[in-house]
């Protein structure tokens, strides 16, 4: 990946037609402002993650490594537990696949066509976090230049790594008799469940999820995540198939 050549390439048409008044420095400044706004909201979570890394027995410098190289908050929280338990790589890969599968759908509306150059596209997809997507995909962000989109993404990444590292530093100061910090992860997933439910308020969906989770626990507690999630996806595929057959027989 040769970033120097990419930077010398002619600007894509979308950037040239971008709001005439603002040059690249103004776009970068605007991107930094947007990115910092999201980063402030993420900071407490980053601190919590850093504290968890240190309290689970990993050296502090694994905290910035996890934050910078994975760059996906909820997976990073799970990874602390998986790594501390020396989980097999296959389980890590499947967990990453299922936890982050939602990112597949971001390709449908993230403005990657405005990020010209293969090197920049590579970084932009790597740093396509939930927050970066939420900030750049809406209609009001239409017309943002490559510089602005990339600055938003890079600001989020740098701030995230900084707050996780800071959390790891603070974690060393928290006395060992303070226990139960890992509940932040449970709380995060509980809150995300409620938010996801608001997107599609269907009672059977969370009940199905709960049944799959409990089935996974009954079958094999050690592989509960893999079994529970697979059962859930298979059940969804089956219900999609049934709905399709019903549609076909009606039509």
């Amino acid at each position: 990946m040769d970033l120097g050549n990419v930077a010398d390439m002619p600007e894509p048409a979308a950037v040239v037609t971008d709001s005439a008044a603002s040059g690249r420095p103004a776009e970068v400044a605007a991107g930094r402002r947007t990115g910092l706004l999201a980063s402030t909201a993420l900071m407490p979570l980053g601190l919590a993650l850093g504290v968890l890394v240190v309290h689970s027995g990993l050296d502090w410098w694994w905290a910035p490594a996890i934050a910078a190289l994975i760059l996906a908050g909820s997976l990073e929280f799970l990874m602390v537990g998986l790594l501390a338990a020396a989980a097999p790589f296959a389980q890590i890969a499947v967990t990453a696949l299922l936890v982050n599968f939602r990112h597949v759908f971001y390709a449908l509306s993230f403005p990657l066509h405005r990020v010209g150059g293969y090197g920049w596209k590579a970084y932009s997809t790597f740093a396509l976090t939930d927050e970066a997507y939420a900030l750049t995909a809406p209609a009001e962000s239409e017309g943002w230049s490559r510089a602005r989109i990339l600055t938003v993404q890079a600001t989020i990444q740098v701030s995230w790594v900084a707050s996780v590292t800071l959390g790891a530093g603070l974690g060393a100061l928290i006395p060992p008799w303070v226990v139960g910090l890992e509940f932040a992860v449970t709380a995060l997933f509980a809150v995300l469940t409620i938010e996801a439910y608001r997107v599609r308020a269907s009672i059977p969906l969370p009940i199905l999820g709960l049944v799959c989770a409990l089935a996974g626990l009954l079958i094999s507690p050690a592989n509960m995540l893999l079994i529970g999630m697979s059962l859930f996806v298979v059940a969804l595929l089956a219900s999609y198939g049934l709905a399709g057959r019903r549609r076909a027989s009606r039509g």
């Binding site: 537990g81 939602r102 995300l192 469940t193 996801a196 997107v199 969906l205 799959c212 989770a213 859930f232």
Partner: peptide
């Protein structure tokens, strides 16, 4: 799948973390 997966996946993750503790 995109509309229906997140709620179940997040719930399963929540149960997983509670069970671990």
């Amino acid at each position: 799948l995109g509309e229906r997966m997140p709620v179940g996946i997040m719930l399963i993750l929540a149960v997983y973390t509670v069970h671990g503790v």
